[in-house]
Nucleic acid binder design. Structure first.
Length: 549
DNA sequence: TCGCAAAGCGCC
DNA sequence: AAAGGGCGCTTTGCGA
């Protein structure tokens, strides 16, 4: 496989290093060059791997020019990952310009790419950093570590490609449907700074019910005062607290809070800002979370509320294929711990039911409660009570999270299955009691880190594999073929021509199996998917069993 | 007047 | 029914 690195030089020149050969091109000529090498690679069934400082900077112009690449290596993500990887000697990453790579942050989508205050960072040599990263991986300590890290870097980089492609293609979004929904619930769009009529009417009801004529329901102190004056004892203004109260004003107040939230987070202003050309284009941040999960820094892609999902509608003649993994994290725990009993329970479509069927727990609810408690570090309540019994049934699985928790409490770094390391413990409080609480809290974090992080790795492998399968199903530009339009932790949405829906669904399932085999070689685990073929995202998962894991 | 923290709600 | 992990976003309230 050829590995071709690209670096920005002064002006609009680009340095291309292809093995031993070096030449220059320009930003304007780059798409044609990349397209040519991709075509050659496709013919030989061995596409090049493009090595660049930041996928979010190099890939958008290529896509805009109609050029899709098969694979890349994102040096920024790679550097960050390897610096924290316990199997890697950080000294391997030190060299010319390396301190700049240490400080490299994600590019902000709002930042104009051409303007940068730091000239050195703007012109880092990709080939030099690439050589260091390759050496660091090759020298990783421990059997199989280099291979696992290589897989992780490839998956992480592939995820970066997916992120840019999803922003490029966008999630199909029907503004007319969204606006009708808003109008039905809130009334017509109000002038800037004003409340919609629907909210104003509810606010009036609340004021009347609590005999508080001047009350602004958006103000927590004012609201608390009004509630107490009405004889209600309440510590805060959370909906869950309010729901416990008996008072005729509570119902309109809860309704007010719900609609006010919709208005401010996914109302007209949100549409103006994030939907264009019939597409919702959020900005994704691969590995934005310390566990390796993605985050998003614009548009709120991590929480497209159920309320507005009816507006996510496929184009005419197209469908949305929505696939999510049932109980991802418990399955990941089974795979990474090598726990045979839990793996056996994971064999069917419903892992929790599997635990009941093998006699480990009395009910499906107990299974869920107990496992979630183990992964999140519950200590008390119903969940805590179940832990001891489950720990005997699944010693390897429970042992793994328990070990991670103890390590975290001691201030040690923990790692995912493929080798991502956790950050180090922060400043520990001096007060003994506070210190103990802090350490326990950190232990809960590291306990969850190993499972959530490995789950993120499985998901990256899943979408990386799916991306290739989708590309092969069509022809033409990316957005003319079935393509990913949304990804969130354990769920994907593919926009596809209706006649390819069956093949897309099959591809998603095959990719899940492939990812399981890649990540959990020794103990392959089933990763059954719930797949829906729908016109609107809101209709996904309707007839199936909804059991987020 | 600005920036930040907390509250509160949404997603997995 | 709530608890336990990870996030983003908006508004409010407060201190500089």
């Amino acid at each position: 496989m050829s590995r071709i690195s690209l670096s920005r030089l002064a002006g609009d020149r680009v340095l291309v290093v292809d093995g031993g050969a070096t030449h220059e091109t320009t930003r304007a000529d780059l798409p044609a060059y990349v397209a040519g090498r991709e075509a050659e690679g496709a013919e030989a069934a061995d596409p090049p791997r493009w090595v660049w400082d930041d996928t979010a900077r190099w890939y958008p112009p290529l896509l805009a020019a109609g050029v899709r690449v098969a694979r890349c290596h994102d040096l920024r993500l790679g550097h960050h990952l390897l610096r924290r990887a316990p199997a890697v000697d950080p000294g391997q990453l030190v060299g010319e310009e390396s301190e700049h790579w240490d400080r490299l942050g994600p590019t902000q989508p709002s930042e104009p790419v051409l303007f940068s205050g730091d000239d050195v960072v703007e012109h880092l040599r990709a080939d030099l950093e690439d050589a260091r990263q390759l050496a660091a991986v090759a020298a990783a300590t421990g059997p199989g570590e280099a291979a696992r890290l290589g897989l992780l870097l490839a998956a992480e980089s592939s995820g970066a490609l997916v992120a840019v492609e999803m922003t490029h293609a966008g999630l199909p979004w029907r503004v007319d449907v969204h606006e009708r929904l808003l109008a039905d619930l809130l009334g017509p769009r109000p002038p800037r700074g004003a409340r919609p009529a629907g909210l104003e009417a509810l606010a009036a009801q609340v004021r009347t019910a609590f005999a508080a004529p001047g009350l602004n329901p958006d103000s927590r102190p004012e609201l608390l005062t009004a509630l107490r004056r009405a004889g209600l004892e309440v510590a805060d203004t959370r909906a869950s607290s309010l729901r416990r109260l008996e008072h005729p004003g509570i119902e309109p107040l809860l309704r007010y809070k719900q609609l006010a939230h919709l208005f401010s987070t996914n109302g007209w202003a949100w549409i103006d800002q994030w939907v264009s050309g019939g597409r919702f284009r959020p900005s994704y941040q691969p590995a934005g979370s310390t566990t390796g999960r993605w985050s998003s820094n614009g548009g709120g892609a991590l929480s497209i509320p159920v309320q507005v999902r009816p507006a996510a509608v496929a184009d005419d003649g197209w469908v949305l294929v929505v696939a999510d993994v049932a109980q991802l994290e418990p399955r990941v725990l089974a795979g990474m711990s090598g726990d045979r009993a839990l793996a056996r329970a994971a064999r069917g479509a419903d892992l929790y039911q599997g635990m009941v069927d093998t006699g480990a727990v009395a009910s499906r609810n107990d299974a869920k409660l107990g496992l979630l408690g183990a992964m999140y570090g519950a200590t008390s309540g119903e969940s805590g009570r179940l832990l001891a019994g489950l720990a005997r049934r699944y010693p390897d699985a429970f042992g793994l999270v328990e070990t991670a928790a103890r390590a975290g409490e001691r201030g040690q770094v923990v790692r995912t299955l493929l080798g991502r390391g956790s950050q180090t413990l922060g400043e520990v409080p001096a007060d003994p009691e506070q210190q103990a609480a802090y350490r326990r809290s950190w232990g809960r974090f590291t306990r969850n880190f190993v499972v959530q992080g490995t789950g993120a790795e499985w998901a990256l492998c899943w979408i990386a594999d799916l991306r290739h399968r989708l590309w092969a199903l069509g022809s033409g530009r990316l957005e003319e073929r079935p393509h990913l339009v949304f990804f969130l932790h354990d769920e994907v949405v593919v926009h596809a021509p209706a006649d390819l829906a069956g093949q897309v669904a099959a591809a998603a399932t095959e990719a899940a199996t492939a990812a399981g085999a890649l990540v959990f070689r020794d103990l392959p685990i089933d990763f059954p998917l719930n797949v829906s073929v729908v016109a609107s995202y809101a209709d996904a998962g309707k007839p199936g069993v909804a059991t987020p894991g």
